[in-house]
Design a binder for these strands. Structure first.
Lengths: 257, 257
DNA sequence: GAGCCAAGTTTTATCGATAAAAGTTGACTC
DNA sequence: GAGTCAACTTTTATCGATAAAACTTGGCTC
């Protein structure tokens, strides 16, 4: 397995478990580095980190995930890693072959196309429901999520280098997309959409599609928000679909190169 | 936790594992009724059994799932059980609270309504796609799945007793519904539908809605198949939606009693 | 005397080390 | 050159230790 993780990020943050028992509530949104709680199990922490590392394309798709190696890397025993991998296997981020271990879900053009298609379908569904049912609180949630997104820099450091993704922006981006469909009235559907979002982000990070003009992207989010507030379902759906498709287009180009 | 499992089914088929450190080798394969391949891990077997027992409502919703207890029940160590529970937690069948163990996902009227709604939405989506894209092979798959379903008795033994569910019918039923949407062109969507189907079956078994007239139910499946073959998307969707809604209606009635 | 708080006990979950089985790779022979 | 056997690697399961949480019991206060 080719290791494409970045060393500076590895030294187990998990070891820094201090502080009392607070879950990932408001504080997680503000102060990210500490995303670990003493009341969280090692397995849950390993799950979060592993998930993040896969989504951020720090682990090569198709690459084998050796339990022992990961255990050493994250500074925990094999058991929590194993539990985390088992959970991820049901999230679609990790492939599990009995007696042959775990591997990062591999990517392909076909996979991407299916994923994109499915995202568009489910997003449309969820968005229309949200617009139809959403109350003022939902609307305000969307506005707030957008505001937070705009206040964060998309990258850290200079240039569109892959290592300079801003994890906070990524979180806020996810939160924004979740907020849009938060009023769809189905936790199942919302969960599915988030799952698909993660899988899509995996491709996006893999292809380093951060170089896309920031202004343009922000504009897409802005228009989306405006359509939401105006309760214009057709326009919102069209914008969101284009948003997803356009990203996929860029990813596809790079994937084939 | 109230144990509502049926004893006659429990005595671990896996318990035949005697001797010191002998895993599930060849002897386990023969000694056991079947359904276990030597190439399957204990964790995967535990996953399958646990999943079945939850779906078949043999484990009380909301009830605590004690690892040690389950280990004894299924005749394996705690570790495979733990891995199975971790997978199930991502399937939505098991709730996982850090440091507080596992429990069967609890049921409620709201939950059921959300589930039903979501099933209808996603089924419609998948069905329309399948009808639009499905080739002859897909059509034949549906016909075959229907045929197999009709050849099996819905219950074993006498009466509509809950213990007399025919596991083969349940499998065939699941396969039929999967076959209908097999050509939707998205493994994600198909997977979601199956997940929702399982969750729905959980409610169905819980409420013992097997007493519904068999003939009528079979008729619904038949009409559905006919609509498929006729490529009448609107009719197929209407039938499937009614099929799902009607079951939910029955479940809801019993749930409130 | 009743209710509440606190310390101790039991239960329960989590973790990591160890051992066994399956799979894999490479060399050797025919 | 192909097939087989053996050593090695990886994965998987179990066990025992550790640590946290819930329950219980006893004491204290009002």
């Amino acid at each position: 397995m080719v290791d494409i993780m970045h060393d500076h990020d590895i030294p187990s943050q998990l070891a820094a478990n201090r502080g009392p028992a607070m879950k990932r509530d408001a504080s997680a949104e503000r102060a990210v580095p500490a995303e670990n709680t003493s009341s969280e199990t090692l397995a849950s922490m390993a799950y979060q980190r592993l998930r993040r590392d896969i989504i951020n394309a720090r682990l090569e798709p198709g690459g084998k995930l050796r339990v022992q190696e990961l255990a050493g890397r994250y500074g925990v025993g094999p058991s929590p890693i194993r539990e985390a991998l088992n959970r991820l296997s049901r999230d679609g981020l990790v492939m599990l072959s009995d007696r042959r271990g775990f591997s990062v879900t591999s990517v392909s053009r076909e996979h991407l196309d299916e994923l994109t298609k499915t995202r568009c379908w489910l997003n449309e569904l969820a968005l229309r429901q949200s617009i139809a049912n959403g109350d003022a609180a939902w609307e305000e949630g969307a506005v707030l999520a957008y505001h937070r997104l705009t206040r964060l820099p998309r990258t850290i450091g200079a240039g569109p280098d892959a290592t300079s993704y801003n994890p906070q922006w990524e979180l806020a981006h996810r939160a924004f997309h979740s907020a849009l469909i938060a009023a769809c009235g189905s936790r199942w559907l919302a969960g599915f959409c988030e799952q698909l979002f993660d899988a899509g982000d995996c491709y996006r990070h893999l292809s380093r599609v951060s170089s896309m003009k920031r202004a343009q992207r922000r504009d897409e989010h802005r228009q989306l928000l405006d359509a939401i507030v105006a309760r214009d379902a057709d326009r919102a759906v069209a914008l969101l679909t284009r948003h997803v498709m356009r990203t996929a287009e860029l990813v596809r180009e790079r994937l084939e190169a």
